[in-house]
Design a protein around this nucleic acid. Structure first.
Length: 672
RNA sequence: GCCAUCGUAGCUCAGUAGGUAGAGUGGCUGAUUCGUAAUCAGCAGGUCGGGGGUUCAAUUCCCCCCGGUGGCUCCA
């Protein structure tokens, strides 16, 4: 972040010398901490050894973090000053924000001005922030009235240990630091929001008030952050969706279920059609599966056991039990099971824009990003173990192709989640009985681990299925030269996976695509194919989604483009406005020609003025506004205004040529 | 599900210290014939989220429910 005028400065220091002494006078108001051998120190600290001290600039990323941390303390200082019975718990920093949790009576943003005023006062007084080293017992004494701090002290310090506490005026904090040298360094800050949380994130523990804020080295940076935040809020897909009339919710009749209006359905269908093309060219055959199943299938798949509280389940008059599908895989498996397969038939790859229903708890829903019914661009590949590599490579090629086309994004990151071999009990793995040599698969987390054949407990874990599959994923990533990060222990219990994140125009990272290997469903549904040597073999299932869900992807799309979608996705591609009624015929005719060329066009022949028509249609974000009057009629041309409000005159046929190419090629940029 | 907060016209919002509501915008009608972000006038629209309580009287105060929003937890 930041880095405005920040250069790394190293200065030699002798053991025992105070860091403060080596900071050049002219940098005093920018340098807030130092670092030697990767350890951060306060400026009031003494060097622990001879060496080169790196001066930490408040404008550096490191400095910003320290500033945020000190600002959090400033907040706690102010809160405890104002609300005498407020007990500070703990704080944390994110990239540009901090929060502090308190046990206190609820506050609202209306109380912020009072708290901010107090913070300003403390900052203005430029109170020294000093570190004091004390024994655990002394620290416990200081915080004797705050049980949260006592927990924290006991968690972090062994008996007879010493630690630091920070003191600014009367306010004390149990903290490792480092901090800015005095409160005056916290020059530009603002409280942002308030919410609630549970102590230690445990839902069973008491409620706390969490106050969010931000801080920057100067007002200018603060204001630009606030402006960006404001802009991001304006880009909220719910707001854009309402302005463009794309989708709606009826909270009385179908809470959490998105309805697509005609405009929204256009976008959704364009995305679906594009995915169909891509699926087709990569060998994924489209299928269609039912939305309602008898609950036996969910019992067989294991979803019932694990997720029955989150499923839409119901009973008919005749006593039959049904459930709406929470996932598409059992449906695809059902289709797969209609045949017997040879190793030559593999892989079998089914895809579907599959709508699933999950009963999200009321507080967990939110716009299109977390609805109760949503459609996944789902795909299930039934593959031989030796085909995992090839299929993964194919998928890893699809993903960037799609996101570059639609979003124009280059920033894509890959996470590989693998097994934690120290805890085989958390995963579905193979075991071999040392007594009778039986091989079986089991997830041992809550079950007793013994041989199903002879009952022996003398078992050997066999990771070979996991190892081979994981190696294939790794090799696929390496083959394509993709940088990735590996996360041991993050794999699903049924197999390793690759998650793919995309950065949007606002710099936010979204997890969209996922490629998951599954050893579990093939066992549950007893899937098999016949191998070369006439033996039954279990296929591996690859679950994959590229967009993730259409709902969430549309939300991201809208925010990424601020609603100004590429023309091929735009519900309204051209909007024709006559200068006055006298040119209605010409405008209608232009509109007709455009429509005949499969361009989504409308003409506005209402009695409003030209300016007003433009004003009103803007929120709809048409790709091109076409204005025609006497000049155009005489010259047989159109005046075209693009999404950036630039204007150009076109001969109608030329314009149609251009826009058709723009649409066909899924261009992000407009023709001018 | 938990905590906080909100729910008034299609939309954005005002208001009533308890006496059943108002603006802008959109809609409709008419006038205006217009050159790139609001031409003028008139009209219609609301059991103030739902239910219960207190009161002579509730949109307003209290309780319960349903939803939205920001978080927590969860997210196959």
């Amino acid at each position: 972040m930041l880095n405005t005028g920040y250069k790394m400065i190293n200065i030699k220091i002798k053991k025992g010398e105070k860091f403060n002494n080596i900071v050049p006078e002219k940098l005093k108001d920018k340098i807030i901490a130092t670092r030697i051998n990767d350890k951060l120190y306060d400026l009031y600290d003494e060097a622990p050894e001879d060496g080169e001290a790196e001066l930490i600039d408040i404008y550096s990323a490191e400095g910003e973090k320290i500033l945020l941390h000190s600002a959090a303390h400033l907040l706690a200082n102010a809160v405890t000053d104002i609300y005498k019975n407020a007990l500070p718990n703990t704080s944390n920093e994110d990239e540009n924000t901090f929060y502090y949790d308190f046990k206190m009576d609820p506050v609202s943003i209306e109380d912020f001005p009072i708290i901010e005023k107090k913070m300003e006062e403390i900052a203005k007084n430029n109170i020294k922030i000093e570190k004091i080293i004390l024994s655990k017992e002394e620290i416990l004494k200081i915080f004797k009235n705050n049980k949260y701090k006592i927990d924290k002290i006991n968690d972090n310090l062994k008996d007879n240990m010493e630690s630091s506490v920070y003191k600014q005026g009367d306010y004390m904090e149990f903290c490792r630091g480092p901090h800015v040298p005095s409160t005056g360094y916290i020059k530009a800050f603002k409280l942002l929001s308030v919410s609630s949380t549970n102590y230690e994130g445990d839902i069973n523990k008491e409620k706390m008030i969490r106050i969010y804020g931000t801080a920057f080295p100067d007002k200018k940076l603060l204001n630009s952050f606030l402006a960006k935040r404001e802009e991001a809020m304006k880009r909220d897909h719910r707001r854009i969706g309402a302005e463009m009339d794309l989708f709606m919710f009826d909270n009385e009749r179908a809470p959490g279920m998105p309805f697509y209006t005609p405009n929204g359905a256009i976008i959704r269908n364009e995305l679906i059609n594009y995915m169909k093309e891509i699926n087709k060219s990569h060998g994924w055959e489209e299928v269609w599966t039912a939305h309602v199943f008898k609950d036996i299938i969910w019992k067989q798949s294991g979803h019932y056991d694990k997720y029955k509280n989150d499923m839409f389940l119901f009973e008919l008059q005749n006593g039959d039990h049904y459930g709406l599908k929470p996932m598409n895989c059992p449906g695809h498996i059902t289709i797969f099971q209609r045949n017997a397969y040879s190793y030559r038939d593999m892989p079998v790859k089914y895809s579907e824009p599959g709508t699933v229903y999950r009963y999200e708890k009321s507080g967990e829903m939110g716009g299109l990003t977390r609805p109760r019914g949503f459609t996944i661009d789902d795909g299930h590949g039934f593959v031989r173990p030796d085909q995992v590599l090839e299929e993964t490579i194919s998928l890893l090629k699809m993903v960037p192709e799609i996101f570059r086309t639609i979003l124009g994004t280059e920033e894509i990151s890959y996470d590989l989640s693998v097994i934690d071999k120290d805890h085989p009990e958390n995963y579905l793995v193979s075991y071999i009985c040392n007594n009778c040599s039986t091989k079986f698969e089991m997830r041992a987390v809550s079950k007793e681990l013994k041989c199903p054949n002879c009952g022996s407990f003398d078992l050997k874990v066999d990771f070979s299925m996991w190892d081979n599959a994981t190696d294939s994923l790794r090799e696929a990533l390496k083959t394509l030269n993709l940088k990735y990060t590996e996360y041991p222990g993050e794999a699903a219990f049924y197999g390793p996976k690759i998650d793919i994140h995309i950065k949007d125009a606002l710099g936010r990272l979204w997890q969209l695509s996922t490629i998951q290997l599954d050893f579990f469903m093939p066992i549950n549904f007893d899937l098999s194919y016949i191998d070369r040597d006439d033996k039954k073999v279990r296929p591996i299932i690859i679950h994959r989604a590229i967009y993730g869900s259409y709902e969430r992807f549309i939300a991201i799309l809208l925010e990424h483009f601020n609603g100004k979608l590429p023309t091929w996705l735009s519900p309204l591609q051209t909007y024709v406005i006559p200068v006055s009624d006298n040119y209605n015929d010409y405008a209608s005719n232009i509109n007709k020609i455009l429509t005949e060329n499969n361009i989504r066009s409308k003409a506005d022949l209402s009695g409003e003025t030209l300016s007003k028509k433009i004003k009103l249609i803007r929120k709809m974000r048409p790709s091109y506004i076409i204005v025609v009057g006497e000049k155009e009629q005489n010259a047989n041309t159109i005046s075209v205004r693009n999404r950036k409000d630039k204007m150009e005159i076109f001969e109608i046929n030329k314009f149609i040529d251009y826009i058709k190419k723009e649409i066909e090629n899924h261009k992000i940029d407009q023709i001018f």
